[in-house]
Amino acid sequence: MRVTFRCDPALIDILPRPKLAREAIPDWLKSMPAKAFSDLHGRDVRTVKQCPPFVDAMAHGFMISLPCDVRVEGGVFEWDWPAPPITVDQHPASPLSFHPPAQVLGTPLHRPDAVLIKFNSFWTIELETGWSLFATHPVNRPDLPFRLLSGLVDADHFHDGGINFPATWLDPEFQGVLPKGMPVAQCFAVPRARPELVFETLEGENAIAYSATVAEILAAPNVYRKRFRQRK
């Protein structure tokens, strides 16, 4: 899968480039222990650091990052981004803009005091024919003070304008800085063809394979990682 990114010529040397999600694994995952004591079991158990599906989901696709520091204090968002003048007409010049809360009226996201931000796009994204772009909140990142709204864009056709990333602000008490390079959206290329759903019962060889696989997983650790996980 080839993904092509384009930005305004004035920003090419200062704009953080999208990066593979595996290059944006948070420090807390890197530093967390592989095992931790469980009061329920009375012994050490493996943490999610040893769960390949958990880690692989966080490492899949690519990340869009914040282009500059954004200070948040008292519900006010401020930034000082000394970017040169934009050369392309209709191009955004600020890292954030905002949505009125009425746009999510009737959804669980709506609150009278809701703050809906939009991470503006400074890169266009072009995918190969037949593929769409699925953008979502960085996977397994509840530590971020916002929650991105997931979206699907047919980026094989829509690639001449930027894809913006709306989010609901979760922490009204947050005071601090959202740093330049902070991941704001995790993106995957997904095929647009509808899947064919097939339903069967576990019988014969499939039933035998099921029982053998589960027995092996219960008997020893790391079976999935050693036998089934594919190199990515």
Score class of each variant (00 low, 15 high):
P179I: 14
Q175R: 14
F188A: 13
T168L: 13
L170V: 05
S150E: 03
A167H: 07
G162S: 03
F188W: 15
A167R: 00
G151S: 06
S150W: 04
F146I: 11
A167C: 09
Q175W: 09
P172A: 12
L170G: 01
M182D: 08
E173A: 15
I163T: 13
V153K: 01
D156V: 12
L149Q: 13
M182C: 02
G151M: 06
E173I: 01
F165Y: 12
F174T: 15
P172F: 13
A155F: 04
T168K: 14
E173Q: 10
E173G: 14
G181C: 07
T168Y: 11
D156I: 13
C187Y: 05
Q186I: 13
E173T: 14
Q175V: 11
F165D: 05
Q186F: 12
V184R: 02
P172S: 08
V184G: 05
K180E: 14
D171N: 15
N164F: 05
P172L: 13
Q186W: 10
G162P: 01
F146P: 00
G176Q: 05
V177H: 09
A167G: 12
M182P: 00
A189L: 02
G176V: 07
N164M: 06
N164R: 08
F188P: 10
L148Y: 04
G151L: 09
A167I: 05
F146D: 00
G162W: 05
V177Q: 07
P166L: 05
L170C: 05
L152R: 00
D160L: 15
V153D: 02
M182K: 00
L148N: 07
G151F: 00
K180T: 15
A167T: 01
V153P: 00
I163P: 02
T168G: 08
P183E: 04
T168W: 07
P166I: 03
G151I: 04
A155P: 01
